[in-house]
């Protein structure tokens, strides 16, 4: 464990807590894409299949449980909670996210480190996570008024993978044989997808005005 990875995990944790806080306290998921939340639930479900078979540390297992629990409960809130589900703007959240799942699965079947069931699904979860934010970014462009919590959620979610990139650089420099091109490229693509969001987020923060993404 290094400071970059810890910062990344804490930023990721903060992002899901911000979202859960928003949904649980104000009972609203306005501006949040259910498609992205469903994709993230699939990402964690396929990423952490080894939660029962391999144990690394209490921290590792605890964080996996938190990410699994939070992503599935957010999906549950947005789909089934009587108050929250009414605030979900179904008409705007129309990204065909299943069109993201299949290519990622095919790619994982083609490009992976080892051709085993767990490894292919784990690689699939990496590819899917890289694009999981797309429905949310599309939704943000459509809903003009981005409330602070949703903006913070996306910002933290984008930032965590940025910290992971620093972690990979650090581990590459300090650990022999630590080379994982698939993880690195997927993580880089993921972070780059946030580039324009980050730009407009900083602009709104610097000029102290509402976050508005260009249509």
């Amino acid at each position: 464990m290094n400071i970059f990875r810890l910062a990344g995990d804490m930023t990721h944790l903060a992002s899901v807590l911000v979202l859960l806080l928003k949904i649980h306290t104000i009972k609203s998921c306005a501006g949040v894409s259910l498609k992205t939340q469903e994709l993230y639930a699939i990402v964690f479900a396929t990423r952490y299949l080894d939660i029962f078979t391999s144990f690394y540390s209490i921290y590792n297992t605890l964080m996996k449980l938190i990410f699994l629990g939070s992503s599935f409960s957010i999906v549950w809130y947005m789909r089934y909670h009587k108050t929250v589900r009414r605030t979900y703007d179904r008409e705007q959240d129309t990204f065909r996210h299943w069109f993201l799942v299949l290519p990622c699965l095919l790619l994982a079947l083609l490009i992976h480190e080892k051709f085993t069931f767990l490894e292919v699904l784990w690689t699939f979860s990496l590819y899917l996570e890289a694009v999981a934010i797309l429905p949310q970014l599309v939704l943000l462009q459509r809903t003009r008024n981005i409330d602070n919590l949703t903006g913070q959620y996306v910002f933290l979610l984008g930032g965590y993978r940025g910290f992971y990139i620093l972690n990979w650089i650090y581990r590459y420099l300090t650990e022999p044989h630590f080379v994982h091109w698939i993880t690195w490229i997927a993580g880089l693509v993921q972070t780059l997808l946030y580039a324009d969001f980050f730009y407009y987020y900083f602009q709104s923060w610097k000029n102290n005005k509402k976050l508005q993404l260009p249509a």
Binding site: R5, R47, Y56, N60, E113, W122, E175, H180
Partner: peptide, 10 residues
């Protein structure tokens, strides 16, 4: 198995 090392990440 080098890939196992990577699995200690979330």
């Amino acid at each position: 198995r080098p890939s196992a090392i990577n699995k200690d990440e979330l």
